[in-house]
Design a protein around this nucleic acid. Structure first.
Lengths: 338, 338
DNA sequence: ATGAAAGCGCTAACAC
DNA sequence: GTGTTAGCGCTTTCAT
């Protein structure tokens, strides 16, 4: 593999001149052309190790996600990669599997590996990532003012869910919540839900399951945690006449909503006729591209894009906002009445 | 960020000694302990740029996939990351979106970026990747003997599909094929299908759609290409009595199978009662973890793991097999009779 | 067993 | 405008 030295020799110029051509610093046309020709001839490309050693940066962005097996993340990563591509950066993926120690070590390794920045999706109890000194943007979680947070409008989403259930005829609403709560932005969905109900005098209740242990294993995949939880909820809330106590449910995720849907139907509760369900995320079936559940959709591509733009600004030393919220919208998925 | 120099100074030893401790070369216990303590105290970690510059490698593996929006790839990447983790390598993801020029440039950039190896999933007309000089393992595609191929047992899969349809009562089989054919291993599924039918004297036909242009855009996502294709097939093969001409279909992918399923049902053809369908891949619903279609399942995690193991051997200069096939199995998904 | 020093490929400051 | 050179952090001879 050719080095800058080979190019210099071939072109009959000095190292410095080649470096200048490489870095777009002006040299005489004659020299520039000779250097460019040698570069092409020798198939020269800069050695990123050497360059990084000098420049103390790598053009690599580390992305931390808990899993790839959740429909939220592939499109997120896709959008990130697209955005990164436009500015010549590369995407390094870290799958945390919700292992706090793995995240901690990723974050500190990030500084070591001289990644230029981190885009992190973390739901575990981890150390303050700003300590690493590497610019980081966090999705769905606001650590502190050194780590800007990008998220959808969670409160607005909860509000919209309650409003939609209500407008479509539900009168007794349940917010069913399961998940982590570490510095978590999604928790504000509950606030929005309550706000709408209170503003409009709607009968409502919140059943919230936040177990620190569960949070680490995650309500992230089709897990037994969810099933047990839903089971418990149903056995406590199916009335003696076989009806469900609520006629509208806002679930904290599409996963949870989907499991609730199945359990309700198994109990001969009709959805959406008797009970309407709205989830969160707006997951689409991989094959059909169709929503699997009525849901508050997070515009995940836009979130990713915006988050990366913020990160790139940070890397360039610009000041950025602490929390950025992207608007959500309702998508019809068959579990609400039309 | 502490350097080896800082550690040496703090421990009161020379650079070389620290380096030796770092690399597990024997030094006196006294020195070793002092160095280890300084390392801990200063939170020292090796600088991969400097290390890579010396070692001429990066510990990065580039993975090229056409998309993340196909249920095959997230679990593949997940398995790759896991495998890479065990040996301290990192995963760099390139999403090609079936853009041949992007792949070409990725592959040559790989050499440049000094990634240690490439795991590539490519279905486009690209340049010989072995020219880059970077060790590469290719999924589903056998370029040449310098680029080992990892794939499932495609021929066996086609054979198994025909056999399963037959054993479950179908008598007139169709193999419906859509996709790329560049050096493609999956094409052997057709061979296996034919082989079983011919061995057992079963009435059968193959309808194959391989369009070079389509191949680049890809039969990879829920696209109109698929729908048009299936539409054409149906209009040519729905008999005057409203029945479908075949009573068993082996489709080249679950995507295709799924679209066929929907179209058949819309034409009042009963699946699996009148027509059985078997797809390929073994996709599972993200939320439920349940297969979406009766299918020949590629054990994608094992494929990924094995492929990476082969790649790591190549990087270490070991000789490896040209083509490695991983056995497949049939999974019941509701489109075949029990 | 340990330390000194060369050099990996590159950039940037400096001298010409 | 161009060439020379120091040095980024590390490994690895080669002396000691």
């Amino acid at each position: 593999m050719a080095t800058i030295k080979d190019v210099a020799k071939d072109a009959g110029v000095s190292l410095g001149t080649v470096s200048k051509v490489l870095n777009g610093i002006h040299v005489s046309d004659d020299y520039r052309i000779r250097v460019e020709e040698s570069i092409k001839k020798l198939h020269y490309h800069v050695n990123p190790n050497a360059h990084g050693l000098k420049a103390q940066k790598t053009n690599d962005i580390a992305v931390i996600v808990p899993t790839l097996m959740n429909a939220l993340f592939p499109p997120m990563l896709d959008a990130i990669e697209k955005e990164l591509n436009t500015c010549g950066k590369r995407m390094l993926i870290c799958i945390s599997r919700n292992d706090a120690s793995k995240i901690n070590s990723y974050v500190s390794t990030a500084a070591i590996s001289r990644v230029d920045g981190i885009f992190g999706v973390t739901y575990s109890k981890i150390k303050d990532p700003s300590l690493s000194g590497v610019p980081m943007v966090s999705f769905d979680r606001h650590f502190n003012d050194k780590v800007p947070c990008i998220a959808c409008d969670n409160e607005g989403g909860g509000y919209l869910a309650a409003k939609t259930l209500h407008k479509k005829g539900s009168k007794n609403l349940l917010c069913l919540w399961a998940g982590s709560d570490y510095d978590s932005e999604p928790i504000h969905r509950i606030d929005g839900f309550k706000k709408y109900c209170e503003e409009n005098g709607i009968e409502h209740n919140v059943l919230s399951f936040m177990d620190y242990n569960q949070a680490d294993t995650g309500f992230m995949y089709p897990s037994d945690n969810y099933k047990k939880l839903v089971h418990g909820v149903l056995s406590n809330n199916i009335l003696s006449d076989g009806k469900f106590k609520y006629d509208g449910v806002f679930a904290s995720s599409d996963h949870l909503a989907y499991i609730l849907l199945n359990e309700l139907r198994q109990n001969n509760v009709k959805v959406p006729e008797d009970v309407q369900i709205i989830g969160f995320d707006g997951m689409e079936d991989y094959i059909t591209g169709v929503p699997v559940i009525s849901s508050i959709r997070q515009p995940i591509e836009e979130i990713a894009r915006t988050g990366i733009q913020i990160l790139l600004k940070m890397i360039d030393g610009e000041k950025v906002k602490n929390v950025t919220n992207i608007p959500v919208n309702f998508v019809e998925g068959g579990t609400t009445r039309s």
